[in-house]
């Protein structure tokens, strides 16, 4: 994906917050971002799947990262949905807050630290150590192929 790079070897990420932590996925994976949306609950679905959204005639599966990371479910009503496509399916990743598009230099990249929560580490490809925060890179494909 050569287009992910520009001349100064930086990458663009879509940053977002869950609880106190900052996460990011490649901006190229993001189709759009929408506000909290009316959900159709799917009875008997895995707990991290919160329901289905009608996105202009397309059906989107909403996934709560809070549940995946086993945080409390006290998500505010003003959560945001990051719409991504994985395979043929559209997913809405429910997050607390969007941090805008972050331009991050490759120099700040570090592999997943040992001490990171084991609940998270399997879905993480690495981190970027920024001045004010640690940006955790999420692996969407791993996230949405889990069996829990």
């Amino acid at each position: 994906m050569s287009s992910e790079y520009n001349e100064t070897n930086t990458k663009q990420y879509c940053g977002f917050k869950i609880g106190e932590d900052s996460f990011a996925i490649s901006v190229l994976r993001v189709q759009e971002i929408i506000r909290s949306h009316s959900l159709t609950i799917i009875p008997e679905a895995p707990t991290h799947i919160k329901g289905l959204i009608n996105l202009r005639g397309q059906i989107v599966t909403a996934v709560s990262l809070r549940t995946v990371f086993k945080l409390d479910e006290g998500q505010s009503l003003n959560y945001m949905n990051i719409i991504v496509q994985i395979g043929e399916d559209l997913y809405a990743i429910m997050v607390d807050e969007i941090l805008d598009v972050l331009e991050v230099s490759d120099d700040t990249y570090e592999p997943t630290p040992e001490n990171i929560d084991s609940k998270l580490s399997e879905y993480i490809t690495g981190v970027h150590k920024l001045k004010d925060r640690l940006l955790i890179l999420l692996d969407l494909d791993k996230l949405l192929s889990m069996d829990n």
Binding site: T40, I42, A45, I49, I59, T61, D89, L144, S145
Partner: peptide, 17 residues
Amino acid sequence: PLSKELKNLTFYAGATI
């Protein structure tokens, strides 16, 4: 069709609007 994450819920044939 339902997304892959929901494929093992065999009692649903899909969703509609």
